[in-house]
């Protein structure tokens, strides 16, 4: 009783207009991720140096011509950072797009499965989730070549299993609602039910999850690049910058610190955005649901 009574109350009393509470989480996240996005965007049209320009002298440290100094091959660190942020965004967006496309399709199909088929599909997804991304990446690199595309494909496929499992649960919950039965008795076809009822209702939770997956994909790409399974030189990925700067960390820490800090900032930024979205989307959803 208590529960229903309470929800009924929030239902029927008109909501007093609350002063709009700013979501500082969302704003901080957007600022962090936005700054790095700006670096990435600028790198598309302008770079301080060419990415294979080794004219700067080795490990100069921050100095006039080179904002952050140069690496052991004499390349400009800031240039590499900018290219790296572009690659980070490409990796994040690419993986999330693959994960969303494959994951949502699989998840929705799985939500319709019943009985033994349902059990089989969930078991398959669980196995896929347990399968290490690294192994998958190695397989794909072996079949194709070490490139950003291979890394993104591996990360995206690995994440699509996670997304599929989430979508399956969310879609099953929506499919059990009476408005789905109402749509069926109104003659609405299944594709239209999925597009018109299921997807809009799982959307808020899905978006939050995809934002988190973006951060994870950026980290995963850095990891794969560190291992040499990502974008090949001269494209500087943060992961490879870390790997290359590892040997000279004590003498020239900037080469490792700079990409490390940007990586952390971007992932924190994206996670804050995810948290902010959760806060922004969930109470509304709850009020509508109640």
């Amino acid at each position: 009783m208590t529960q229903t009574d309470l929800t009924a109350q929030t239902q029927q009393t008109p909501e007093p207009k609350r002063p709009a509470k700013r979501s500082y989480t969302l704003i901080t996240g957007c600022v962090l991720a936005g700054l790095i996005a700006l670096l990435a965007l600028v790198s598309l049209v302008w770079l301080p140096y060419a990415s294979d320009d080794t004219s700067g002298g080795r490990l100069t440290g921050p100095a006039g011509d080179h904002l952050l100094g140069t690496d052991k091959l004499g390349r400009d660190l800031f240039t590499q950072l900018m290219t790296g942020s572009r690659i980070a965004f490409e990796a994040g967006l690419g993986s999330v797009l693959i994960a969303a496309a494959v994951g949502v399709t699989l998840g929705v199909l799985a939500a319709f499965a019943q009985g033994w088929l349902d059990d089989t599909v969930s078991a398959f997804l669980d196995i896929l989730i347990a399968f290490p991304t690294l192994l998958l990446a190695m397989l794909i690199v072996a079949a194709r070549s070490a490139s950003l595309g291979s890394a993104v494909l591996a990360i995206g496929l690995a994440q699509s299993a996670v997304v599929a499992r989430l979508v399956r649960v969310l879609a099953k919950r929506v499919l059990a609602q009476d408005y789905i039965t109402a749509a069926r008795t109104s003659g609405t076809s299944w594709p239209r039910i999925v597009a018109g009822h299921v997807l809009p209702n799982i959307w808020p939770t899905l978006v939050v999850n995809l934002a988190l997956q973006f951060g994870l994909a950026v980290l995963a790409e850095a990891g794969l690049s560190y291992l040499g399974l990502g974008a090949p030189p001269p494209n500087a990925s943060w992961g490879r910058m870390l790997q290359e700067a590892q040997a000279t960390f004590i003498t020239a820490p900037a080469g490792a610190l700079a990409p490390g800090i940007l990586l952390v900032l971007l992932v924190i930024g994206v996670n804050l955005i995810a948290d902010g979205l959760r806060d922004a989307l969930d109470p509304a959803a709850r009020r509508r649901r109640a």
């Binding site: 009574d5 309470l6 009924a8 109350q9 029927q12 009393t13």
Partner: peptide, 11 residues
């Protein structure tokens, strides 16, 4: 009826 506050009172 619902929203009358009867359950809250018992709590």
């Amino acid at each position: 009826e619902s929203g009358s506050g009867k359950s809250l009172t018992t709590l």
